[in-house]
Design a protein around this nucleic acid. Sequence first.
DNA 1: GATGCCAAATGAAACCTTTCAGCTCCAGGC
DNA 2: GCCTGGAGCTGAAAGGTTTCATTTGGCATC
Lengths: 341, 341
Amino acid sequence: MKPNVGIREVAEHAGVSVGTVSNVLNHPKNVTPANLAKVQQSMIELGFVRNDLARQLRMGAGSTIGLVVLNISNPFFADLAHALEAEAEVNGHTVILGSSDQDAEREDRYIDLFEEQRVRGMLIAPLHGVTPRLSRLRSRGTPVILFDSSADPEHFCSVTLDGTAGGYMATNHLIDTGRRKILFAGGPFSQVGERLTGASKAAREHDGVTLSLMETNDLTVAEGREVGNKILAMPTTSRPDAIFAANDLLAVGILQSLILASDLSVPDDIALIGYDDIDFAASTMVPLSTIRQPRELIAREALRLLHEESDAGSGHVHGRHLFTPELVVRESTRPAERADA
Amino acid sequence: MKPNVGIREVAEHAGVSVGTVSNVLNHPKNVTPANLAKVQQSMIELGFVRNDLARQLRMGAGSTIGLVVLNISNPFFADLAHALEAEAEVNGHTVILGSSDQDAEREDRYIDLFEEQRVRGMLIAPLHGVTPRLSRLRSRGTPVILFDSSADPEHFCSVTLDGTAGGYMATNHLIDTGRRKILFAGGPFSQVGERLTGASKAAREHDGVTLSLMETNDLTVAEGREVGNKILAMPTTSRPDAIFAANDLLAVGILQSLILASDLSVPDDIALIGYDDIDFAASTMVPLSTIRQPRELIAREALRLLHEESDAGSGHVHGRHLFTPELVVRESTRPAERADA
DNA sequence: GATGCCAAATGAAACCTTTCAGCTCCAGGC
DNA sequence: GCCTGGAGCTGAAAGGTTTCATTTGGCATC
């Protein structure tokens, strides 16, 4: 079998010019039905497969979209990637994925790699906000959409979730269900700052509500368990009556520790709310209340902006697109039996 | 800023020929230090970024690897993808990911798409084994590595896990810890056939051990909970004393139902073992015993075979590479208090 | 029968790189 | 002073596609 069947071989075999074959592929309506049939027949017989590299080279714009996430092991990013991929596929685009694993060097490598591949655009959850490398990339013409609220809206489009609103929402919900001694667990604080800000705002607005903090190194199940154990180690009287965990993984870990201590009930003794609404949140021992981030919407909006930016050229106005998350109430924050204080 | 700075502009700016610029990029040792410096300086000044599309076109071989998995929402595949991506990145390759979501049409679309992109090779977890489309792809010269044990080892390389061994191992472990009435839960059976085969082999080899089956539609947490509820609905005397769940998601669901029924203890009344060793398995309420599939090894071997197949051309011998999984014992199969029957 | 028009087909140029045969130039050997 | 050899550089060709200015052919109009 011939290794490389090109448009030229097809043209020759069908007795037409290469231009016509190209038209069959891209503008079939400009081709006589007779020729169309002949060409398609030849394609099949020769086993022709269009070479997308040459196509993209010629057209200048790739059909690939680069995605760089912080950590693909985090179900939130995995789901986001899945949503983006599904959404991109609708337009015939392909997503190439890079997981920076919270490493600036890896992030840089992926950005360079994707730029060399002439991706149509990049979607990035940046580790340290907008780096010079990112600015250069942008100024060279590659559309960039950030998942980061600290991005300068003058020069970059960003799609973000309103972490402050989410934190506020979660904390208010705890207060509404009668809790007063609230613990915020999460960290590093630099990464969950907005959620914390929202939480502390809500706490300040209510008399008699105290907010204490417990910083973690990471947002994992294992860290969550440690948080849980620390709480169990507290004297009963000083324990919080509600915990706001900065993400669901952490919440799952906390839940595990607390439930193991059989003298403590969630939600009766301590309410618990997480963040992200990962698929597991609904399936934990005590189904977890959480803040849902509308992944599909984010995915759709990010791609919409990407296309806008790459199509509209200069007419496009950058901006920060903020999504408001949504409270999902499940069992873990059911009002305590003893009603509100 | 000039939109497209090519090798030609760089050459002109540096006062050398395009060939020399190309050599700077690909064979720096053949270039005078003086020229090398000049060219590199020009590259920086002009903001040159090598166009990988043209490069791949010219070189004939892409640097991208296509991966098609059954369902990226399954943590096992997510982790596999992650491992593959990390491994590929070492060689400067990029992985493009497609999730067929168990849909044959989507699988086909991705295969076509990737072939048009002239990927260096494809890694596929096929839905229905080797389809004609796959054979065509292969015969046109794209290396294909399958994650499927039913593949014809004459014509395809495959990297698979010995599901029979895993099933045997899991079941034997249950028997070793004193269980006799074992339930295999999972499905559709067509997808978990090997595990079932292994389980039934182990059961047959031991007198007094019975194996019953419960088929599920899918391998999800939700299905697992249903399985759990069905078991709880059984009269106490006919309940199994051990469950082998065909994957961890299922096991997690089962565990949740069983634990909620406070009169039943895992592992004292019913032991439970899963399959895959997803990250969550260690973090469930009762840490889950499971069968670990060596993801990193699989990833490495798959890529090794891919390179071998694409380099060695005809000298390469296809084959089926079987990995033996590994038993991971955790709390959920601790021998029952009352010792063996 | 000549003219004009439009749809359809043509084929060369362009996209950007790598490769490679051939060229230049210089050092060293005789 | 001439020749040889080799290091370094050059520039055209190739890789497969799309685009577009031209050409072709058919048909209606006058």
